[in-house]
Design a protein around this nucleic acid. Structure first.
Length: 568
DNA sequence: GCCGTTTTCGGCCCGACTGTTTTCAGTCG
């Protein structure tokens, strides 16, 4: 039996099946169903292959008996015959045509079938020889666009997305600048950044104004604007000197709620919302809700009013991913999500005792205290604390504690999980520590699940740090069996953190949700190596909210004496 | 292919933009 396919593998197969089916001109709604199933699978924390084998994958919305059987087939044989069959019909590179901007499945199919073009190189030659324009509906502009895209080259790399930690401050700054303008009435960030998603493609800002043209004029002349990509009466797009795209939409005050809802997304959330409304004879767009029968249009200045009108509790942006939030909002069973202000302590951070640390223990402690925290577990890397240095650090911690009372610095460590699963700190030292984080730092491909389970089983380990070791845009995480790890963590009362580093945010949202539902207490930590990095907690909190976590499910919302009691 | 407080059959979000066209299909978000 082949190894169990990961959710990513299953989703990729379904997406490819959708692509080739579409090029072959199969029924659009079936293609849509494949894509929806792929998205659902990517956003599922549990192993869909396992669910399919148990016959319960079809309980996931968008997955029925047919797709479940395809997943079972892939689990048992390593491939899907429906996909293999179509792969044999569509030349491999024709699928790549879809990645060219403005080129969809219909056009790709015609280029292949009517021109006999089967590779990107042949497509380039055909466009140069002006043969593409011989197709009905395509002209010189189309050829130009194709050549331009091909010349730019698009490698196998998926597009890089910006990090939330980069986008969030930019959106805040833009919103602040626009609010300060006399023409502005209401201004808000929208889009995936408002949903707290870990990465973004572009940044969205919406506004109402007494003089929209004046506000847009101000927007496009902000000092960090490099280029104006589009500029009209109600919207503009600029590119910043950092290379970020920012969209601004300006609407009348009475439509602010509808527009904010529309541009916050997600797309899937909006589609699901509109489908439910449609069944009740309502049509939703960014301009309001139309009662289809009468043609009457309801407009909403307030986003919450829009949700309430449709029969839902207002849904926090972080939950708008079409993963159960509509049903919960209808039943009135939305969770009360954890907030930044609920955090009272730090459980993973570093000082200059680690060579990559920038601040002293006292500086870290004083900054945490100024942020409203009451304790901080100092968890410097174990390999900088060898040969008596750990004992020396404890002495400094004692001295700092005397000066920062009643704030408390705790003796901690971030231990390394060795390739054999052992923790690289001596037993007699571990016994003296208040808080032990264990993390993978190398050999990510060497039995990561087994090593993490070994660390969890070690009674002196309190928390697993950055579970998969992923670095956004740089490396995928280790292939960790999340469900097994979560189950063992529940058994042993071991914590699994959400690491707030902008390029980690590890555990990811759906895994943290799985952990929370299973009963794991999840600390939101910063892994700060400087005083400023303690501010990353807002990123981790966004991730925790996306994982549906409440204050009770986040460990470091509790005072240290309670946490100390829980570790045993 | 999925799904159901109108439906187990007959639907499937909505609007803007683009390039190509004289009314629209395809693509995108």
């Amino acid at each position: 039996m082949p190894p169990l396919p990961r959710n990513q593998d299953v989703a990729d197969a379904l997406d490819e099946l959708a692509d080739v089916s579409e090029i072959l001109g199969e029924q659009g709604f079936r293609v849509l169903a494949y894509r929806r199933a792929a998205t659902r699978i990517r956003e599922t924390g549990a192993s869909v292959a396992e669910l399919a084998q148990q016959g319960t994958a079809k309980e996931l919305p968008g997955i029925g008996a047919t797709i479940e059987s395809k997943i079972v087939e892939m689990t048992e044989t390593g491939s899907m015959s429906a996909l293999e069959k179509r792969r044999a019909e569509v030349p491999a590179e024709v699928r790549q045509f879809l990645r060219l901007p403005g080129l969809g499945p219909k056009t790709a199919a015609r280029i292949w079938r009517e021109l006999g073009v089967t590779t990107l190189e042949e497509l380039r030659v055909a466009a140069e020889q002006q043969r593409v324009r011989s197709l009905q509906g395509l002209g010189a502009k189309s050829e130009e666009r194709i050549l331009e895209a091909l010349a730019k080259g698009f490698g196998p790399e998926p597009e890089r997305r910006g990090l939330l930690g980069v986008g969030l401050p930019v959106v805040r700054q833009v919103v602040e600048e626009l609010r300060a303008h006399p023409a502005a009435v209401q201004v808000s960030g929208a889009g995936s950044v408002r949903r707290g998603r870990e990465t973004f493609r572009d940044l969205d800002v919406i506004a109402t104004a007494t003089d929209p043209a004046a506000l847009i004029g101000h927007f496009v002349t902000l000092p960090w604007v490099l280029d104006i990509a589009a500029r009209g009466d109600t919207k503009a797009t600029v590119v910043t000197k950092q290379g970020l795209r920012i969209d601004l939409r300006v609407v009348p005050p009475e439509d602010f709620g509808s527009l904010l809802q529309h541009f916050t997304g997600s797309k899937d959330h909006n589609v699901a919302l509109r489908e439910e409304a449609q069944r009740r004879g309502l049509s939703i767009s960014e301009y309001g809700v139309t009662v289809v029968e009468t043609g009457e249009v309801r407009r909403f200045a307030d986003e919450g009013d829009l949700y309430r009108f449709l029969g839902y509790e207002p849904i926090p942006p972080e939950l708008r991913e079409s993963s159960g939030e509509l049903q919960a909002a209808r039943n009135g069973s939305l969770p009360t999500l954890v907030e930044v202000g609920d955090l009272v302590g730090e459980l993973h951070c570093h000082s200059d005792w680690s060579s990559d640390g920038k601040a002293s223990i006292e500086e870290m402690a004083r900054t945490a205290k100024a942020n409203g925290y009451r304790f901080l577990a100092l968890t410097d890397h174990s390999h900088y604390l060898r040969e008596g240095r750990m004992e020396a650090q404890w002495q400094e911690i004692d001295e700092v504690n005397a000066r920062v009372k009643p704030f408390k610095v705790l003796r901690g460590v971030e231990a390394n999980i060795r390739a054999d699963g052992a923790i690289d700190v001596a037993d007699e030292l571990l016994a003296e520590l208040d808080w032990v984080v264990a993390s993978l730092h190398h050999a990510f491909d060497k039995s990561p699940t087994e090593r993490i389970l070994a660390a969890i089983d070690d009674p002196r380990v309190d928390c697993i740090g950055h579970l998969t070791g992923r670095k956004l845009n740089r490396r995928a995480g280790a292939d960790v069996d999340i469900e097994e790890v979560v189950a063992r963590a529940v058994e042993t009362k071991t914590a699994l953190e959400i690491n707030s580093q902008p390029d980690r945010l590890d555990m990811r949202d759906v895994h943290a949700r799985l952990a929370g539902e299973a009963g794991v207490l999840v600390p939101v930590t910063t892994d700060a190596h400087s005083t400023g990095a303690l501010g990353y907690r807002e990123l981790g909190i966004a991730q925790a909210r996306r994982a549906w976590l409440t204050k009770d499910q986040v460990l470091n919302t509790r005072p240290w004496r309670e946490i100390a009691k829980l570790r045993s």
